[in-house]
């Protein structure tokens, strides 16, 4: 799975680094000074690198916890994200990560304790108020858990702080760290979902929708709060029937009382990012659809976006309370 590991010299002796290296005894190890000399270098081809990404173990010096872009959230007033990991195991064609970084390598910042200190500082700034933290912004929160153990290490922090909410955003089947412990009421395990055929076409290397639903059901029955993320909404032939079928499958798999929140959002790319991604994947049907440029963003026409959002809201409302719905329209950084 990981053939090459770049290691910042400063974290070589970190216990987490040593633990990870121990899990990949056959991987090639290359010592570096700073992760940027590999990750940020010009002349990299994201598409080719995605065939065999390397792991970079690094130290995050600052900016551990940042405010989310406007429009990003699940009902809280104070929303922050953190990125202990850059890039994703999966290769979803609609994902902005394709246009975000020059490299497809995974960067793991091993100083998890500094992320917790950062969250502690944010909590202190918002005394007595709920604060929401999002971990799946620059990565899938759970897909590389077998490598990182981040979730297992971080859950106790949230268990001890009731007003700190955590969203784990994932498509992964890595449920072990969550099933091996009691549920934490202020942690939401949010699954990204698209209709089955869309997922098969666009979510490369990701588990099938059926397997995701099975894990969601298992976690829900164990007592975890489940988030449903229909984000982005993807247009295509018979989209309405396909989304309706998806919603039916979700409600068959997950007990409604365990559904914490539902969000849905449009497919949108900043102009430059869209241009870069199309250059990487010119043959992709998604980018040949009826997208248009408006206000610096490439997206479906406004009426189509609204029609899809309205349809989803209406169908989901038949089963869910209005208070759990959130429309997600973030401006990508």
């Amino acid at each position: 799975m990981i053939e090459t590991i770049y290691i910042e010299r400063s974290v070589l002796d970190h216990p987490r680094t040593q633990g990870i290296l121990g899990r990949f005894p056959g991987a090639e190890r290359i010592l570096i000074e700073r992760y940027g000399e590999v990750f940020n270098r010009r002349g990299q081809n994201f598409r080719l690198q995605k065939k065999q990404p390397a792991l970079i173990l690094a130290y995050k010096h600052d900016g551990h916890v940042l405010s989310t872009p406007p429009g990003y959230g699940i009902g809280g007033e104070h929303n922050y994200y953190f990125s202990h990991l850059l890039n994703c195991l999966y290769d979803c064609r609609y994902c902005f990560l394709q246009g975000m970084y020059r490299s497809a390598h995974y960067v793991l910042f091993v100083n998890y304790e500094d992320f917790e200190s950062g969250m502690e500082a944010v909590l202190a700034r918002h005394a007595d108020e709920d604060v929401y933290f999002f971990s799946g912004y620059d990565c899938d929160s759970l897909a590389l858990e077998s490598v990182t153990h981040f979730v297992a290490d971080t859950l106790p922090f949230f268990r001890d702080r009731e007003r700190a909410f955590l969203e784990l955003r994932t498509k992964s089947l890595q449920s072990r760290p969550l099933l091996d412990t009691d549920p934490v009421p202020n942690v939401v395990v949010a699954f990204s979902l698209t209709p089955d055929h869309v997922a098969q076409s666009l979510e490369h290397k990701a588990p099938s929708i059926a397997r995701r639903l099975a894990v969601m059901g298992k976690l829900a029955r164990h007592g975890w709060s489940i988030g449903l993320r229909f984000d982005p909404l993807i247009y295509g032939e018979a989209w309405a029937e396909q989304y309706e079928a998806l919603f039916d499958s979700v409600f068959r798999a997950v007990p409604i009382e365990r559904i914490h929140s539902v969000s849905y959002g449009p497919l949108r790319f900043p102009k430059k990012m869209f241009k870069d991604i199309v250059q990487l994947y010119p043959e992709e049907r998604l980018f040949a659809g009826p997208l248009e440029l408006a206000g610096g963003m490439t997206a479906y026409p406004e009426e189509l976006e609204a029609e899809m959002a309205e349809f989803c809201r209406e169908k989901l409302s038949a089963s869910l309370d209005d208070t759990v719905f959130f429309q997600c329209t973030p401006e990508i950084r």
Binding site: P195, V198, Y235, G236, E237, R285, L286, A288, G289, P290
Partner: peptide, 12 residues
């Protein structure tokens, strides 16, 4: 013509 097409994701 292209704007009128809706991708059929069921087709590979």
């Amino acid at each position: 013509h292209l704007d009128s097409l809706a991708t059929d994701w069921r087709e590979p």
